Computed example of a mutant assay.
Amino acid sequence: MTNRFLILIGFLVGLMGCGNDKPPLDNPSQGSIIVAADESFQPLVTQLTEAYAGINPNTHFKVVFKPEQEAINMMLQDSARIVFTTRELKPNERAVLDQRKIKGATEKIATDGVALIINKANTDSLITMAELQRIFSGQIKQWGQLSGANQHSPITLVFDNNNSSNLEFVLKTFNIKDVTGLRIFTTHSNREVIDFVRKNPSALGFIGVNWISDSDEPLSVELARDLRVMGVSGKVNPTKRDDYFQPFQEDLGMQRYPLRRPVYILSRETHPGLGGGLINYIARDAGSLIIHKLGLWPRIPYDRVINLTK
């Protein structure tokens, strides 16, 4: 009788197990999720996710780099848990999560800048926002039309992708609706923009600054070789070199560089999971040190406690 009872219990437990084939939920110290990110943030996102996985060995991030809109769509379609982006969700995108009763989360983690890069042979490394406005409105087409120019070839504007955050940000900044009359060349990545500019003295490239701002990273140093990063002035008629600023840390943090932009993490997570763990690490923990190391301005500086003893 006892044996029959035990067999019956085992059979019932087996049936219950068969109906529960869902994988266990991830948590901040265990599990695997997909992360989508705009390609301009590849160095930043790679270092942040690798650092988190390094201190939490039971976690894994599959990072997918896409143009910004495609990365956001991945998150909305539940193909990615979180996404690194330069903007918050638009009302129609927010509605997608609302329809599924997903509250989601938006966390600003840093201030970034779009860097303007030119070939080292081009010594005209200063430009104003007014001049950029005239370039994107088609009024300026030649380098020789800029003050201090040492060449007179056509200006080729180089971006990483037709749908990239770099291009969208610049067009929005200068309120440009139609680019059909502009000399624009698109590649497939920020790295390819760098390679194109290095080979073409007439090119003006637009990249995420984290690609070239980490002086401790050999790849970053190599990519910055044979390039100039332009100084940009918000003044219409700047009178001195100090009126121009580059997209590096202090000028981003002090809001002096005109082409600065926020960095957000957008999440669709519905439980205290691995995505939330990564966000907390970046926004409120040592992750801000990595942001700082990469030359960006972290939203919340990492507090360093120093004990002095006699």
Rank of each mutant, 00 (worst) to 15 (best):
83 V>G: 06
37 A>P: 02
180 T>A: 11
107 E>C: 05
260 R>A: 14
49 T>V: 12
207 I>E: 13
83 V>I: 02
98 D>Y: 11
222 E>Q: 15
101 K>H: 14
13 V>H: 00
35 V>W: 06
36 A>I: 04
264 Y>P: 11
174 F>T: 06
123 T>K: 12
119 N>C: 03
286 A>M: 08
258 P>Y: 05
127 I>S: 08
305 V>C: 00
306 I>D: 14
239 T>Y: 01
115 A>D: 09
44 L>I: 02
302 Y>H: 15
294 L>V: 08
250 E>M: 11
236 V>F: 13
167 L>F: 05
254 M>C: 03
163 N>I: 04
45 V>A: 01
152 H>I: 13
198 R>W: 04
67 P>A: 11
60 H>W: 05
200 N>V: 01
6 L>Q: 02
90 K>L: 15
74 M>G: 10
65 F>W: 00
24 P>I: 11
4 R>F: 06
153 S>G: 08
277 G>A: 07
80 A>W: 01
26 D>V: 06
201 P>N: 01
97 L>N: 04
75 M>D: 12
288 S>W: 02
257 Y>F: 10
57 P>D: 09
80 A>G: 06
81 R>D: 13
297 W>H: 01
283 A>N: 02
221 V>H: 11
253 G>I: 06
175 N>V: 13
75 M>C: 06
309 T>W: 10
58 N>M: 13
202 S>T: 07
11 F>K: 08
214 D>T: 08
193 V>I: 08
44 L>H: 04
